[in-house]
Design a protein around this nucleic acid. Structure first.
Lengths: 338, 338
DNA sequence: ACCGAAACTTGAAACCTTTCAATCCAATGT
DNA sequence: ACATTGGATTGAAAGGTTTCAAGTTTCGGT
């Protein structure tokens, strides 16, 4: 059924090798034969079998980005940065969504390794997972995106999350808040820990006790979890209730905000909110959201460049690149009228 | 360097065929040898070469979803539905982002066909593109998602966009609006045409002239374009300026809304807004957005099921499935106090 | 102990390309 | 005319796996 090089060769009256040359080394073939072969290919609807190609030639022109949550605009923006860089070199990118589940991530990594993709960009569920070493040890380079990993066994690009957390908290402290909720989780996520740590650091720098940061744990960084956190926050007795919330990402912040708006809690008067990531929807929210911005596209572009270097450059050196986040102040933390 | 079945066979003291059987037909192998072979595989870090596998066996365990705009939450929600269905059968999904560009789409389709993926889910830039017929004619099934195509050469799942447009307009007419903007484009997108047609139909059913639907063309369905459309809308002299806007999707509506809020145009009092898709951020917007809801997850699940049927079932029949949209009323169209 | 059947294992062929050393041929220089 | 050159073409081998017909072992029954 399927047309192969052999059929083309027969139909065009040339040898197998010549057909292959037309495909891979057009310069080695005389213009006349090349034209003939290409014509036949068109007529017969020849589609090269990439499996056979790759098996023989060993190379691969596809990379993959295994993303933690494809529905989070932050990651799709990073992906856009990656694609920009890859498209310029005629490489394809497959996106895989681990949905924050280690088993799904492992599954995808496995499949990708079996497929012998040229390289993998990964925002891992657990950056310390030993599987990552195994995979890159066997020859599939992995670049870690938006996370960091202890040691220098991999390239990585990330944002200084501790600093980000600090920025967020300093902003709130500046605005007079002293009792602040930290909403985020699960704590297994290194970023959540880092952002929390940064917040704590800012607090103690300001001479305040750590107990002023009320931790509200969530089981994921999603809008739905944000809404639930809002309920728990509302359940805290008035006197002890925080006047501001720092959310570990914008989805949580949006959920929190949504709940506040619908239950009549005024933002920022009753509760100031700071998010993290500054996704496009943050600025368009019910109350435009103050957020800690990460350079999403640059993150993606840089990650792609590191990966390409690792793929192509024999004396590649691993690099851990850290970008600096930036606080974008909006209405959700405007100083209260008093 | 890389470990192959041959190495495993040697190390475990069995034949090639047996190793293969351990991999593909564990029941044909005695537990004892199986254990031994598996142990060796683990020790040597054997990773099957999927290219070779696929070349020989002909099958493939991956499907792909070529999406129009990975940053639009609508599509990532559809993708989630797809993944749900596929994960249950241990199939992997690769997502590719055509970014609304025909060349990129063609590129991806090409790569996927060369890769011999089992099947493709596609939200095409142009549903009538002849390339689609060619590809499925050569044996890679394609299911069209969120679009329809003339004829029954492919399976498709979509929402009745004409009805959706009608619902949106009826809602606005009910609320007393008579001069309404239709914001969307480019008109090459069939959905935009359909939603517009539905809007027109509702208008004439209500006995109003078509000139009451002011068309504002955009070059894409994005937040940024929504903001630009807002400016054009604002430029229309007061008397002729519409009192309501129906946006071809929620991203446009969010952009429009954002611009209104920041320039002091009151929504819904000065301008009522209806979006389309009802993405998660619609309800969380500055003014919660009235929108026409599409059953995103079901769309994805159903598309995946159709594709699987086409892949697995020899006497598969193409089906064009249409879902019914539903209007979700929120604050952005609340009746004006009068 | 021996038979036959059932359970397991084997080895070679096939999948479709790319690669590369060898061959061919036309054109050039003498 | 003839040797030389160098570009164009060829054909067989190789790449890692699955398949399947054929071969070998094991075991219950007698």
């Amino acid at each position: 059924m399927a047309i192969g090089v052999k059929d083309i060769a027969t139909a065009a009256g040339v040898s197998l090798g010549t057909v292959s040359n037309v495909l891979n080394h057009p310069d080695r073939v005389s213009p006349r034969t090349r034209a003939r072969v290409e014509k036949v290919m068109g007529e017969l609807g020849f589609v090269p079998n990439e499996s056979a190609r790759q098996l023989r030639a060993g190379r691969s022109r596809t990379l993959a980005y295994v993303v933690l949550d494809a529905t989070n605009p932050f990651f799709t923006d990073v992906a856009r940065g990656v694609e920009e860089t890859l498209a310029a070199r005629d490489l394809s990118l497959y996106m895989c969504n681990s949905d924050n589940r280690a088993d799904r991530e492992a599954n995808y990594l496995n499949r990708l390794e079996e497929q012998r993709v040229a390289g993998i960009l990964l925002t891992p569920v657990d950056p310390e997972a030993p599987a990552l070493d195994k995979i890159s040890g066997r020859g599939t380079p992995i670049v870690i995106v938006d996370r960091t990993r202890i040691g220098d066994t991999h390239c990585s690009v990330a944002v200084d999350d501790v600093l980000g957390g600090r920025l967020a908290l300093e902003h709130l402290l500046d605005r007079g808040h002293e009792r602040i909720a930290f909403i985020g989780g699960p704590p297994s996520i290194g970023q959540v820990r880092d952002r929390h740590a940064g917040a704590l650091a800012a607090l103690s720098d300001a001479g305040l006790d750590e107990s002023n940061l009320v931790r509200i744990d969530t089981s994921a960084l999603s809008v739905g979890e944000g809404r639930q956190a809002a309920q728990r926050l509302a359940g805290i007795p008035g006197a002890r209730r925080p006047t501001a919330a720092f959310c570990a990402n914008d989805l949580l912040a949006l959920g929190l905000l949504q709940h506040c708006v619908s239950t009549g809690v005024s933002v920022p008067d009753d509760l100031a909110i700071v998010g993290f990531d500054d996704i496009e929807y943050a600025g368009a929210a019910a109350v435009p959201l103050t957020s800690v911005r990460q350079p999403r596209l640059r993150l993606g572009r840089t990650a792609a460049e590191l990966l390409l270097d690792e793929v192509e450059n024999p004396d590649h050196k691993h690099q851990q690149i850290t970008f600096t986040p930036e606080l974008v102040a909006r209405a959700s933390t405007e100083t209260r009228a008093n």
